[in-house]
Design a protein around this nucleic acid. Structure first.
Length: 424
RNA sequence: GGAGGGGUGGCCGAGAGGCUGAAGGCACCGGUUUGCUAAACCGGCAUACUGGGAAACUGGUAUCGAGGGUUCGAAUCCCUCCCUCUCCGCCA
């Protein structure tokens, strides 16, 4: 959500930001309406508040007269008339505010100055780590998994539907090992507080982080209770401090959480159907940070480094890309994707997406902090990134560390978690 | 799920139609006093929107779990919902 003042005073800046994202065409008509709606809204506020002030004063007079034992019938009648007018104006005001809100809630965040404009073809590779292994003679992860019985997508489809999977045996152990490796790393070495979060969240939480109202079709909803299965731990963990004012000294705050994630992938039918690259349910360890505005760029780089460390320790070559404005998510102001090399499928796989949301989510979720005693509260900046998503990481482990005999060498850091140095 | 008790400022807690943005206390901030600390005393201490002002500041409106209703006027009365506590039942 955007600052009302941004809409009012810097509408042209907002238009430019939407142009950079390539969405000005869709949003222009609505942005054009904002100025008028805001003016209307403020005129109505003035009108209604002026009348409320008069009514309140009149009510005081009624009290005074009654106390003095005088008649107040004329004031009461006048008050009733004012009340009717106020009710009418209130309805008009609510309509104007709703119309403005409906537009504002659909407008994505403004990307930062260093984010390239344009669509995903303008994404920039920032750096590459490791040497991508040749695809020659390397099997895709689904073949390795099938040979070793690590996961079973067919029975996942039978039991739940396509996009669901059973990890089995050593495969299941690998999932559990990754969970512990990631959490231990972030808690013990990167200073995160571990969080075990709700997997069902309410509408206010989904709206707070920006999944709603735009992307309701992508979420699984529990109808009777109006709860949603989380698409990422970002939702519960960022909403942890919704509607709160944090004390001066507590920032930055850093949380990591393991959760399953649930996504309908409504627009992705037919994409990545083989293997485990795109699932309706998958596991992820998520990193979430809250910080003061002036600190957010440094916090983003820190977060990104923590996610990168996971791939380095797993000995998986990867590259870091900065997403162009048009490829940057709705709530994000700047996003780095971590793409790990998967020689078997011959592609760079997105295993983490590290973003700063500036104050966009904080406004929606009303998360503030007080810079110093006696100062006015300000919105925090929120950031998050995967550290890391499991299925694609597993695909990369299997493909990068497979041996000519079909076995897979378990990366050193994972051996104590998986209980073996080789999957065969 | 059933039956009752509750949700008031950062916290505790009063208020039961008008004098209440809200007593009193704690915490916090500033000051006075005081070898230091402590204590005592004095003062300050919510948020949002909106008007005026270059600003310091200042006028107004709203907010006592949420939403609706009654009323000239609601923290206070009525309805719906949410949360919480106690007891009973059920359950990992």
């Amino acid at each position: 959500m955007h600052d009302a003042r941004l809409i009012r005073e810097r509408l042209d800046d907002l238009r430019e930001a939407m142009r950079r994202r390539g969405v000005l065409g869709q949003l222009a008509p609505q942005l054009d309406r904002c100025e008028g709606l805001d003016r209307e809204r403020r005129l109505l506020i003035q009108a209604v508040e002026e009348r409320k002030a008069a009514r309140n004063a009149s009510s005081q007079d009624v009290a005074r007269r009654k106390k003095a034992g005088e008649d107040a019938a004329d004031l009461i009648a006048h008050g009733r008339a004012m009340g009717e007018e106020i009710a009418r104006l209130d309805v008009e005001l609510a309509a104007a505010e709703q119309a403005l809100d409906a537009i504002v809630m659909q407008v994505p965040n403004v990307t930062l100055a260093d984010v390239p404009e344009g669509d995903e073809t303008h994404n920039v590779v920032v750096r590459t780590w490791g040497t991508p292994r040749s695809s020659d003679g390397v099997k895709p992860h689904w073949d390795i998994a099938a040979a070793q019985g690590l996961f079973d997508t067919e029975r996942g489809a039978k039991v739940s539907g396509s996009g669901f999977v059973f990890f089995r045996g050593k495969g299941a152990r690998l999932v559990r090992g990754l969970m512990n490796f990631f959490l231990d790393s972030h808690v013990d070495h990167h200073g995160y507080e571990e969080v075990w979060a709700p997997l069902l969240v309410n509408r206010a939480s989904m709206t707070g982080t920006g999944q709603l109202p735009k992307m309701e079709d992508d979420a699984y909803r529990i109808g009777g209770d109006d709860l949603f299965l989380i698409p990422t731990a970002e939702v519960p963990v960022t909403n942890l401090y919704r509607d709160e004012i944090l004390d001066a000294g507590v920032l930055p705050k850093a949380f990591c959480a393991y959760t399953p994630c649930f996504r309908r992938e409504a627009g992705a039918a037919g994409k990545d159907t083989r293997g485990i690259l795109r699932m309706h349910q998958f596991d992820k360890v998520e990193l979430v940070r809250y910080c003061a505005p002036e600190d957010s760029e440094a916090q983003l780089q820190l977060l990104l480094g923590h996610a990168e460390a996971m791939l380095q320790q797993l000995e998986i070559p990867y590259r870091v890309t900065m997403l162009a404005a048009g490829d940057t998510g709705f709530s994000s102001a700047k996003t780095y994707d971590l793409e790990a090399w998967a020689p078997g499928v011959g592609a760079w796989l997105e295993v983490s997406s590290c973003s700063t949301f500036t104050d966009f989510q904080a406004r929606r979720a009303n998360i503030r902090y007080r810079p110093a005693k006696g100062e006015k509260p300000r919105f925090v900046h929120t950031l998050n990134g995967s550290g890391l998503a499991f299925p694609r990481t597993i695909a990369c482990i299997l493909e990068n560390h497979q041996q000519p005999d079909g076995s897979v060498v378990v990366p050193q850091v994972l051996r104590r978690y998986v209980g073996t140095d080789r999957l065969a």
